[in-house]
């Protein structure tokens, strides 16, 4: 049994049929990546898993339990944490308050304090800006805060939606290092959505290629990196 199983889900926005029977599996301790062009349905997939846009049909099973119809805040309590597309930092909350919100569902005060120290250690730039409002941070700092905030939730599965979007190459490098580190050192299971497919596949155990609401290819990160069709469409091959 996989930690997270998505079975044949269909999700709609009004009449728009965004996910048309999509299935993926995420094993414990893996990084799994979901790649695909703009509008393919990557964000919708993550939103369906975390309860923001529940599936009209199909099932999401986490740790053996059906979570398809649970409200988003209940799903968070089970340990699925979503760092959404566009970072979505609370711009009028301070850096510290943003991190505290990440730990909202937890009650283990001592451990929360330790996790916060850990986030500051990992992202010293955030520590220098503890009392600054989220909205005043640079794009890169906001992305660190978004990941830090997700770390504060002590995730079992971390859903990351385009964490490298709009960042300078050096920061992209840093973000990928952190993702790899979280997985390697903390054993956090990660479902990573990325436009930067090459990089994503290089750190992923498993990959899925999504096109207009359907999975078109899947395989190990390694295999997809060398799949001619994937190279052609997503890895900038000729």
């Amino acid at each position: 049994m996989s930690l997270l199983e998505v079975h044949d889900i269909h999700t709609y926005y009004g009449k728009i049929h965004a996910l048309k029977g999509l299935s993926i599996r995420v094993e414990v301790g893996q990084i799994v990546t979901l790649i695909g062009g703009n509008g393919a349905g990557k964000t919708t997939t993550l939103n369906t898993i975390c309860g923001i846009t529940p599936a009209a049909q199909g099932r999401v099973v986490f740790d053996g339990q059906d979570i398809t119809r649970l409200p988003a805040h209940e799903i968070v309590r089970r340990g699925i944490i979503h760092a959404p597309e566009g970072r979505k930092i609370f711009s009028r909350l301070t850096v510290r308050e943003n991190l505290e919100m990440g730990a909202f569902a937890r009650n283990d005060t001592d451990k929360i304090a330790r996790d916060m120290d850990y986030v500051y250690e990992r992202f010293p730039r955030l520590k220098e800006r503890i009392t600054q409002l989220g909205g005043t941070l640079s794009g890169g700092e906001q992305q660190m805060l978004a990941i830090g905030r997700a770390m504060m939730a002590s995730p079992k599965v971390l859903l990351l939606d385009e964490p490298s979007m709009g960042l300078a190459p050096k920061l992209v490098e840093e973000i990928f290092n952190v993702i790899d580190y979280l997985n390697r050192e903390n054993g956090t299971t990660i479902l990573l959505v990325e436009q930067n497919a090459t990089k994503a596949l290089s750190i992923a155990a498993q990959g899925y290629v999504l096109q207009t609401g359907l999975i078109t290819h899947s395989g190990t990160g390694e295999a997809l990196q060398h799949d001619p069709a994937v190279i052609e469409a997503y890895l900038g091959g000729h």
Binding site: C50, G51, I52, P71, A72, H73, V76, R77, I81, H82, P84, K88, F90, S91, R92, L93, E97, E100, M101, G102, F104, A105, R149, A153
Partner: peptide, 20 residues
Amino acid sequence: KAMRAVAEDKNTASLMGINV
């Protein structure tokens, strides 16, 4: 703090485990 988070963005607040 949760009130202020909800005031700013309900969806993201619910992703924090906040019951909006």
